[in-house]
Design a protein around this nucleic acid. Structure first.
Length: 421
DNA sequence: TCTGGGGTCCTAGGACCC
DNA sequence: TCTGGGGTCCTAGGACCC
């Protein structure tokens, strides 16, 4: 019989902020950005939640619901630092730990009873150890499947521990809303409601063949989850096997929508550089480049291109991204741009000898730049866009949103953008 | 309400090959 | 010349998670 823990930090971002500024304690706090910014709530304190504020809610909505809340941008590095501390504590209980995100982890605690005692006792020890090391609270779910352990930790919040002994899974899940099942979001919930399915118990009672017919392959996995099983790709694989990233991406939402070609080109270059940098950090090459564009009405489009060889070079990514963008763009104002590296490979793709020398030179230059950036941050160097005209380089460094409005004549600029280095 | 940014997984059609 | 079916790759879109 398997034994899994799911450890979930309570209001993680807010709690870390409180460590650095204790005056925030007990107050309505919203992490995610300023109240008038475009963006959503990353985390809300329990005091803020009383006003209906919750994560993923637009910041402006949060402000309307709770104007007295303290809005903070947040400190990513601190969250990463504390996430590592938590990981270290969890590692001391079992090597089979997998961080599912920055603030939650699965532990395979099978066979640790002699070392740590029965499940609840082990969970208390673990909870206390996390608290001692970080001064942060967490909640722990315990079950024979990861799926149920995750649902448990959610039900245990805040600062609680919940164990569902083997055989009790169905009883525990049955009265819960279908939305509580990991993987069931707004859309699936609506679809299930349309079939008269509201509780997990309703789902568990159905004939799997019916669910498969209505919801496809994915429906079968859903039926399994309703019974407390780890079905579907979600809970595949052993815990503790680190996996390589499948994609690397960066995107940016403009403060105000823009149709300015130079601003958009500069942003594509900047995003491409960031993606390339991360590819090099991971030591992987991308075969496929994808862009995303979103217009003012929120309509969103993606375009992708598989290259003849995998790359991690700024200009190759940027070139592909700009080409994809200009083929798809209708010239209407843009709200968001994104650049993605996909089909990541461990090795550089097949290249010709000439390309080889060229990329080798690039590699040396990029390694040097990465080093400087590592030391001084991204602003240590303006831009790597050697293939881009000087105008772009200046703009990349500037905040594109703050550029003064320019005349309609963009011809020469566009030409220049196409030249090669 | 006016909707971030970083990801994963799934589906489905068409191309292309055997 | 008309016609299969399977497998894999490419592309676009979408649901979902934190």
């Amino acid at each position: 019989m398997k034994l899994y823990f799911h450890v979930d930090m309570d209001a993680f971002f807010v709690s870390v902020e409180e460590l650095f500024d204790p005056s925030l304690k007990g107050k309505p706090v919203v992490v995610g950005g300023k109240a008038d910014q475009r963006g959503v709530v990353s985390a809300a304190s329990y005091a803020a939640r009383k006003y209906g504020v919750h994560s993923a809610m637009p910041l402006r909505t949060a402000y309307k619901l709770c104007p007295q809340a303290i809005f903070v941008e947040g400190h990513r590095e601190r969250y990463t630092e504390y996430s590592r501390k938590v990981y270290t504590v969890l590692q001391s209980f079992t090597p089979r730990v997998e961080m599912a995100s920055i603030d939650e982890a699965y532990l395979d605690m099978t066979g640790t009873e002699r070392l740590h005692g029965p499940p609840l006792e082990a969970a208390h020890k673990l909870h206390n150890a996390v608290k001692a090391a970080t001064d942060l609270n967490c909640s722990v779910g315990i079950a024979a499947s990861r799926m149920v352990a995750k649902v448990c930790s959610d039900q245990a919040k805040p600062n609680g521990i919940l164990w569902i002994p083997p055989g009790q899974e169905a009883n525990f899940l049955a009265p819960l809303d279908v939305r509580k099942i990991p993987g069931v979001g707004k859309v699936t919930e609506q679809n299930l409601h349309a079939c008269g399915i509201r509780k997990v118990g309703d789902l568990a009672k159905l004939d799997p063949a019916f669910i498969e017919q209505r919801f496809g392959n994915w429906g079968l996995a859903l039926a399994g989850k309703a019974k407390g099983l780890d079905s579907g790709a979600w809970f595949d694989g052993e815990i503790g096997e680190g996996h390589d990233p499948k994609s690397v991406s960066h995107e940016h939402t403009f403060m105000t929508d823009t149709a300015d070609t130079d601003t958009l080109d500069a942003m594509l270059v900047k995003l491409s550089e960031k993606v390339a940098r991360r590819l090099r950090d991971h030591g992987v090459w991308a075969r496929t480049v994808q862009i995303k564009l979103r217009y003012s009405d929120f309509s969103t489009f993606t375009r992708s291109k598989t290259l003849d060889h995998a790359t991690q070079i700024d200009t190759e990514l940027a070139e592909a991204a700009r080409s994809l963008f200009h083929k798809a763009w209708t010239k209407k104002p843009i709200r968001l741009l994104g650049v993605y590296g996909q089909q990541l490979e461990e090795n550089e793709g097949q290249t010709s000898l000439i390309a080889e020398t060229r990329t080798d030179n690039w590699r040396k230059a990029l390694a040097a730049v990465d080093k400087i950036r590592g030391k001084y941050g991204d602003d240590g160097i303006v831009s790597l866009a050697a293939g881009m005209p000087a105008q772009f380089r200046a703009k990349v460094h500037e905040n594109p949103e703050n550029l003064p409005g320019k005349g309609p004549e963009k011809g020469p600029m566009k030409e220049a953008g196409n030249e090669k280095g």
